[in-house]
């Protein structure tokens, strides 16, 4: 029985075997909010370095940090929150000190035409306004909490979504009157949602740290990619998407 269980384990483990290391591959684990920018930066990095192949795995920062902690084959980690980067650092997972490469600020997102006439954070306290926020467990929810505290407003959300893109979807479909998302999300959905900047957003800015990882199979490639993200070109792409410079 034990032998059979072992066989089963081997069979199951065999299914998950990673592909062999290719010298020129850089595997980047990046926060979901970096999807547009890092896809583009990866392509530009590839054309600037012939023979190099950038593979980006996008996901929630906390999930990515857990995957790295469990030994996922990543060369670079770009997180949407310092706390998740800290998790990786504490596990001895980074090859260099993480650096902040971008900042993101919250904006109020409303459906095109702003049917409910939302003007500011104070409207999030109205019982008859339909509101979507991120759950406090994810970075955009933590940032929203800081913004509401700064504004002295107690929001009355109808739903606490699992990530910022889910909030954006609810706004885009008109299922809610307003939501709090990042400015970069409003830009990515230009035309279908409208963004309203609000003063308290200054108090809830999210830092995005990046670091090459200790267990990188392509250490040189990892460092080069981090440098590229922090270069003038990298900053230009990030700024275009709505990120603030660090």
């Amino acid at each position: 029985m034990r032998a059979l269980a072992l066989v089963a384990l081997v069979v199951v483990a065999g299914c998950g075997t990673a592909e062999p290391t290719t010298g020129g591959q850089v595997t980047v684990f990046a926060a979901a909010s970096l999807t547009e920018t890092f896809t583009r930066l990866g392509e530009e990095f590839e054309s600037a370095n012939p023979g190099v192949d950038v593979v980006v795995n996008f996901g929630g920062s906390s999930g990515l940090a857990q995957q790295i902690g469990q030994g996922a084959p990543a060369d670079v980690f770009a997180s949407a929150s310092p706390a998740n980067m800290e998790q990786v650092v504490d596990g001895g997972g980074t090859a260099a000190e993480p650096v902040t490469f971008a900042r993101n600020r919250l904006e109020i997102a409303v459906p095109a035409g702003n049917p409910a006439g939302i003007t500011g954070l104070a409207d999030f306290a109205h019982a008859d306004a339909r509101i979507a926020l991120c759950a406090e467990q994810v970075p955009c929810g933590a940032a929203a909490k800081r913004a509401f505290e700064a504004a002295g407003v107690t929001p009355r959300p109808d739903t606490l979504e699992q990530d910022v893109k889910a909030v954006l979807t609810k706004v885009r479909l008109g299922e809610v009157d307003a939501g709090l998302v990042y400015r970069t999300d409003v830009r990515s959905a230009a035309g279908r949602v409208e963004g309203l900047a609000f003063p308290e957003a200054d108090r809830a800015v999210n830092d995005y740290p990046i670091a090459p990882l200790a267990k990188a199979r392509n250490a040189a490639g990892a460092r080069a990619f981090v440098d590229f993200v922090r270069s003038d070109r990298g900053r230009a792409v990030l700024a275009e998407a709505g990120f603030d410079a660090p």
């Binding site: 979507a132 959300p157 109808d158 889910a166 979807t169």
Partner: peptide
């Protein structure tokens, strides 16, 4: 569920 009904305790 989370997509259609959202998430509120």
């Amino acid at each position: 569920t989370i997509t259609f009904a959202g998430n509120f305790p």
